[in-house]
Simulated scan of single mutants.
Amino acid sequence: MSQKNETLSLFLAVVITIGLIFGGLWFLMERWAQLSGTVPKASESSNTDNPINQFVNNNRCNVPNLPEGTFNYGGSTTWAPIRKEADSVLQNQCPQFILRYTQSPSAEPGSGTGIRMLIDNQLAFSQSSRSVKAEENTEAKQKGFSLKEIPVAIDGIAIAVNHNLNIPGLTIAQLKNIYTGKMTNWQQVGGPNLPITVYSRTKEAGGTVDFFVENVLNKENFAANVSYVDTTTEAVRKVAMNTGAIYYASASEVVPQCTIKSLPIGRISGQFLPPYQEPVIPQSQCPNKRNQLNSKVFRSGDYAITRNLFVIVKQNGQTDQQAGEAYANWLLTPQAQELIQKAGFVRIK
């Protein structure tokens, strides 16, 4: 009898142990399912209480007429900060609208290259820091469509010089004379007796150079003494090392720099306006503090070398036109204009 009791006790112990093991496994599996979201908790039975549903609802795409699909776009290098700040937000809000930045395999990136690729149907729309040229629109029309430019931001050209150059500013005429070779010494514009070292990117580089040649040089050619650089970063480094150097670029690229200073410019002598907000931030306080764009004079057009940034859209009645116009219209919304300002440009609205 005692042997039977021992056998029964052993059997019950085994059963209880197995039950506890399976019960523990069941509890762990249920808990894991709840944490991974495959089984809703009781408190998540309502869609309105589900944090995942709230995330989706709060990030719903509200861009009118935005098509679905992948769209190639590109162009101006000036636009790089906008692509970083604004386009990423649009992609998060509207994942069905996929933007793919596309460069030419054979030409330098820039506004002109982007418009060329747009005409050749390699891009759905392009970004430009200058207006469309008449010959570009003519060529597009020969292919069955026209090009529409939609302004979405304001920028300007800032003149970079060495911190040690003592000069109050330059007029547009003086700037033209420097870049066309008629003035070669800073003494000719009220500065020290020092040769002017002139830097520029090449004409093939993009919209900023095109705009400068068209609006400052009045379509005249650069002088033979102009030295060409590949990037603004390279130019800033060279200007910082040479007291007599000068360079121009988008104000958003020049004004916040620590190693060089932006030069006030004007349409007539003695009436110079700085591209930065006054008072100027001393070099000793940079980069903890940086100079900010003088938005007021850019927006009013009082600053002598002000320009717009454009989305260039094909007028072909197809999905590419829909994508370009929807993208441009989104950039004109209050949210996107804030992002454009954060990227270092002046909001147009």
Score class of each variant (00 low, 15 high):
Gln335Trp: 10
Lys238Pro: 08
Val198Ser: 14
Thr319Leu: 03
Ala223Pro: 08
Gln34Leu: 13
Lys296His: 11
Ala336His: 02
Arg201Tyr: 06
Ala153Met: 08
Asn308Arg: 08
Leu35Pro: 03
Leu165Phe: 07
Gln271Pro: 02
Ser104Ala: 07
Val216Arg: 03
Thr77Pro: 00
Cys258His: 12
Glu325Asn: 12
Gly206Phe: 01
Asn242Lys: 04
Asn137Pro: 05
Glu234Asp: 05
Gly301Ala: 05
Ser106Thr: 15
Ile119Arg: 01
Gln96Asn: 10
Met117Ser: 07
Pro264Trp: 01
Val311Gly: 11
Ala158Asn: 02
Pro105Gln: 06
Asp230His: 09
Asn329Ala: 12
Ser126Pro: 09
Met183Asp: 13
Ala80Cys: 02
Lys176Gln: 14
Thr48Arg: 13
Ile260Thr: 12
Thr202His: 08
Glu325Cys: 06
Asn316Asp: 10
Ala328Gln: 06
Asn225Ile: 11
Gln3Lys: 15
Leu90His: 13
Phe145Leu: 04
Phe27Ala: 13
Ala304Met: 13
Gln277Trp: 06
Met29Phe: 12
Thr197Met: 11
Ser9Asn: 14
Ile312Gln: 00
Leu332Val: 08
Gln337Val: 07
Thr233Cys: 00
Asp302Asn: 14
Ser250Gly: 03
Leu20Lys: 07
Ser227Pro: 04
Ala240Lys: 07
Glu253Gly: 02
Leu263Asn: 08
Gln103Cys: 05
Ile167Trp: 03
Glu278Thr: 11
Asn294Pro: 14
Ile265Cys: 06
Ile82Gly: 01
Leu170Met: 10
Leu273Ser: 01
Gly207His: 00
Val63Lys: 00
Ser88Thr: 01
Tyr303Cys: 03
Thr102Ser: 03
Pro275Val: 04
Val236Lys: 05
Met241Gly: 08
